[in-house]
Each structure stands twice: as structure tokens, then as C-alpha cells.
């Protein structure tokens, strides 16, 4: 039998109380239960970054986060982002198919915050390394780096 547990969490500022299967990932919770399909499933194993959201302010792979383990969390997905980086991505053509884009955006917003919090020098090499958890098979990397540098 599936094990069900109640959880409550805030997503993009909106409060949700619901009962979930303990096996449900935060990603599937967002996509299948809350209708927030902006966060993408590219591998379901933390190997591509398409599912990246801001979990309690930090970028994290929603596919490996069990929803029950994040009872009480504050989640921001691409639908809840309102960041100049989004315009920069369009302007710089920092995507093609767009499937990795929500994860790239959440990851980049999280990375910018990390660089500030940890007092790290944000040059192109830093961005390239720290954004390497977000795979873009279309190969938009130079444009992604340019977009991030535009707003950094």
C-alpha cells in the first residue's frame, strides 16, 4: 500500500496543504499535483538540472527531494521568478528548445546569491563551473554565460 502523509508548503508565495504519497518527489508534486509544469523532468536522477528550483532560498534538484522531506519548505519555481535574468535569457538567446531553461534560471539565481553570500569572484570561469549542473543539449552555454554576466 502506498504510504500517505500530510504536508504543507509554500510555493511561489502560495500556501498548499495536501496529502502525498511518500514516494512523490518535490518535482512530481509541482508538476502533477500543483499544475506547475515549469520545472522540468530531464533525468529524474539529479544528473541534468532541469528540475532545479529554489528550495528555502537555495537551488536544489527537485527530482531528488522527496516532498515529505520538505514539509514546511518555501519553494520558488520558474513560474514564481521575477528576475531581470529572464529578459537577459531572451535577449541573449540563452536557450533553444527551452526545456532546460527553467532549471538554468533557478540555478543561476541561486548561484548569484551563493557568490554574494560566500564572497566569491563572479567571472566567466566561475559561472561556467557553477552552472555545470544544468545541462543544455542545444548548446546555448555561451549565451547563458553572457546573460548571467549581463545581470551579475
Amino acid at each position: 500500500m502506498a504510504e500517505l502523509q500530510p504536508i504543507a508548503l509554500t510555493v511561489n508565495g502560495e500556501h498548499h496543504s495536501l496529502v502525498v504519497d511518500t514516494r512523490t518527489s518535490l518535482l512530481d508534486l509541482l508538476r502533477e499535483h500543483l499544475g506547475l509544469t515549469g520545472s522540468k523532468k530531464g533525468c529524474d536522477h539529479g544528473q541534468c538540472g532541469a528540475c532545479t528550483v529554489l528550495l528555502d532560498g537555495r537551488r536544489a534538484n527537485a527530482c531528488l527531494a522527496l516532498a515529505v522531506a520538505h514539509d514546511g519548505a518555501d519553494v520558488v519555481t520558474v513560474e514564481g521568478l521575477d528576475h531581470p535574468l529572464q529578459d537577459a535569457f531572451v535577449e541573449r538567446d540563452a536557450f533553444q528548445c527551452g526545456y532546460c531553461t527553467p532549471g538554468q534560471l533557478c540555478s543561476a539565481v541561486g548561484m548569484l546569491d551563493e557568490a554574494e553570500r560566500w564572497d566569491e569572484r563572479l567571472d566567466a570561469d566561475y559561472v561556467r563551473d557553477r552552472m555545470s549542473g544544468n545541462i543544455c543539449r542545444c548548446g546555448a552555454y555561451p549565451n547563458i554565460v553572457a546573460a548571467i554576466e549581463d545581470v551579475a
Partner: peptide
């Protein structure tokens, strides 16, 4: 020209096959 669906893609509003309700 910027991609016409660019805004949709950066706001998570572009709907892919699995995502139709």
C-alpha cells in the same frame, strides 16, 4: 529577432507534451 516563444519559455509557460492537463 528574439524568439517569439521566448517569454513563455523563461516564465515556464511553454507547454511540452507531458504537461497538458
Amino acid at each position: 529577432a528574439d524568439r517569439l516563444e521566448g517569454r513563455d519559455k523563461v516564465q515556464g509557460e511553454a507547454t511540452y507534451a507531458y504537461e497538458y492537463e
